[in-house]
Nucleic acid binder design. Structure first.
Lengths: 165, 165
DNA sequence: CTGTATCCAAAATGATACTG
DNA sequence: CAGTATCATTTTGGATACAG
């Protein structure tokens, strides 16, 4: 009764049958083990990496770098040309590139030419992360009709207010 | 020369060789085709679904619902017990549940008992989305040592300021 | 060209009080 | 118990000016 999963399980209402409680107990145990294994801090990779896929620019940056190394200005212009929702600000691009670089997903290098050029490229780790993004994207593309249908149904029948099921 | 990929390609600097330009052209063509196929709007599924995995609560909610249906209050208490970074506010939980419900990833139902109980459960679509989250999570867990090492290296050697490569 | 600093706007989240 | 409304706070993103 002293272990965390049991304590968490106390959050369940009394209306649960034994099978449901067991299912939730297993699920909670897994969650708590995962939380204990890697940190719960805000900047832990298990939080920041999924966040990359959700933020406005990181996945697009990785997408463009998947085509080969690019300079800061090239990235900025390409994003402006592709995103069609207003380009990225110089500040944000620098910020996102730093974050990606810090996590080892993007590499920054200066060529030996004159004048020197600052180039960004995906690392092997970054390519793997990007592959996961592409997998999710493909699923989402396939699921989009179903999602749109769900939205239409929700917006039609279930307005605001306390709905009666 | 009038097609969008060619126009976007103009963002590339003059220093690119033919092979690099071809690679980027292919990459850009794919991106632009995808952008044209589904919308670029902020609430398009291809944007909101990846955002779900990145926001602070949605994936956790799906994770808990993966253990079986749960009530609003149960979810709230379980999140408080598991998240250990402060629980979710009632408002945010309602908001996130509505969003998930609207996209057809979570189903809301009222049981026929007395008193009636409002229950939330993962839909088949939601279970698929959650599976993608788990896949990404597993990869991130495996990659965490590499990411931590990259962060340590970055924080050590490359301070702020114009770094000399 | 790359990058930083500063200030500002918008969005996400939380706290609290309230309704049915 | 489920849900809404309102307000404060935090986070994220953008505009602009500036430095090397």
């Amino acid at each position: 009764m002293a272990d965390p999963a049991d304590r968490a399980l106390a959050a369940l209402g009394p209306g649960r049958d034994a099978a449901a409680r067991r299912r939730h107990a297993d699920n909670l145990a897994g969650l708590l083990r995962a939380m204990a294994a890697h940190g719960r801090e805000r900047d832990d990779p298990v939080r920041t990496v999924p966040a990359l896929l959700g933020d406005r620019w990181s996945s697009l940056v990785m997408n463009l770098l998947a085509g080969g190394m690019l300079r800061h200005g090239e990235l900025r212009r390409l994003i402006g040309a592709v995103s069609s929702e207003g380009g990225i600000s110089q500040r944000m691009l620098t910020l996102k590139l730093r974050l990606l670089e810090r996590d080892g997903l993007v590499a920054r290098g200066i060529t030996a030419e004159t004048p020197p050029r600052v180039e960004y490229a995906l690392t092997a780790l970054g390519a793997e992360a990007h592959a996961h993004y592409l997998a999710l994207l493909r699923w989402t593309e396939a699921a989009t009709p179903a999602i749109r249908a769900a939205r239409a149904a929700f917006d039609a029948g279930n307005g605001p207010g306390p709905r009666a099921g």
